[in-house]
């Protein structure tokens, strides 16, 4: 069964590579990509920690609700693991 995650609804200042339209949205892990330097530190020439990067798949219905062109279409995006919170299977609809 696909692993469900929710993107954190943070809004920190600075260089962040989590698009606003995905914040607070729930998706499933499509694949794990390995660890990469955290761009939020790298952008400021800090010694960036290597953080797991994950491809998360969101449905159009989850992102746009009734405004989705076709609910089953998807958007995949790469999200750093510290932006993701795991969801219990019990949360599943």
């Amino acid at each position: 069964m696909a692993e469900r995650v929710r993107v954190r609804r943070w809004a920190p200042p600075g260089h962040v590579r989590t698009p606003f339209y995905l914040r607070g949205k729930t998706g499933v892990i499509e694949r794990r990509l390995g660890r990469f330097p955290n761009p939020e530190e790298l952008a400021y020439r800090q010694d960036a920690a290597r953080i797991e990067l994950v491809r998360v798949r969101f449905t159009a219905a989850e992102l746009w609700g009734d405004g989705a062109e076709r609910p089953d279409d998807t958007v995949d995006a790469e999200i750093y693991a510290h932006w993701l919170e795991p969801l219990e299977a019990a949360d599943a609809p």
Partner: peptide, 15 residues
Amino acid sequence: GRDVTLRVHDSTADM
């Protein structure tokens, strides 16, 4: 067509 699933890939990070 409606029978085709559209998968959009947002290049947000290192890929």
